[in-house]
Amino acid sequence: MKKNMGNADRVIRTIIALIAAYLYFGGIVTGTWGIVLVVVAAVFLLTSLVSFCPLYAIVGLKTCATKE
């Protein structure tokens, strides 16, 4: 797995995951939408930790800096 996510992308995904977790565990979003939100937050957090997004790999997108 080669890294395909840049630092800005990783930070944005982490912030979104933290906001989603706050919304769910704060009781603001509940039920099915809450569970979907937690799953999306977990995926965002996991992909930002490993710096690899499978969807980016399928599409051929890279947000990380390349060395020349």
Results as ranks from 00 to 15, higher is better:
M1S: 14
M1W: 10
M1T: 12
K2W: 08
K2V: 12
K2T: 13
K2F: 09
K3M: 08
K3T: 13
K3V: 12
N4T: 07
N4M: 08
N4L: 07
N4I: 05
M5G: 05
G6W: 08
G6E: 09
N7R: 13
N7K: 14
A8L: 15
A8P: 00
D9Q: 12
D9H: 11
R10H: 02
R10P: 03
V11F: 13
V11D: 04
V11Q: 09
I12R: 10
I12S: 08
R13C: 05
T14M: 13
I15Q: 05
I15F: 11
I16F: 04
I16G: 01
A17R: 01
A17K: 02
A17N: 01
L18H: 00
A20Y: 01
A21Y: 13
A21K: 02
Y22M: 13
Y22V: 12
Y22C: 10
Y22I: 14
L23W: 10
Y24E: 06
Y24Q: 04
Y24D: 02
F25M: 05
F25D: 02
F25S: 05
F25E: 04
G26A: 08
G26M: 07
G26S: 09
I28W: 09
V29W: 03
V29I: 15
T30Q: 13
T32A: 09
T32R: 10
T32H: 06
T32S: 10
T32N: 09
G34S: 07
L37H: 01
V38R: 00
V38A: 13
V39N: 00
V39D: 01
V40D: 04
V40T: 10
A41V: 02
A41W: 01
A42I: 09
A42R: 01
F44S: 02
L45R: 02
L45N: 01
L45T: 03
L45W: 11
L46G: 06
L46W: 12
T47K: 09
S48D: 04
S48A: 15
S48T: 09
L49T: 05
L49K: 04
V50I: 15
V50R: 14
S51W: 10
F52G: 00
F52T: 07
F52D: 03
F52A: 03
F52R: 09
C53W: 06
C53S: 10
P54D: 04
P54E: 06
P54W: 10
L55E: 02
L55D: 01
L55P: 01
L55G: 11
Y56H: 14
A57T: 11
A57I: 00
A57K: 15
A57S: 15
I58V: 14
I58D: 03
V59T: 08
V59P: 00
V59H: 05
V59W: 11
G60A: 04
L61P: 00
L61E: 12
K62G: 02
T63Q: 06
T63G: 12
T63L: 07
C64S: 13
C64F: 02
A65M: 09
A65W: 08
A65G: 09
A65N: 10
A65R: 14
T66M: 11
T66R: 14
T66L: 15
E68H: 11
E68N: 13
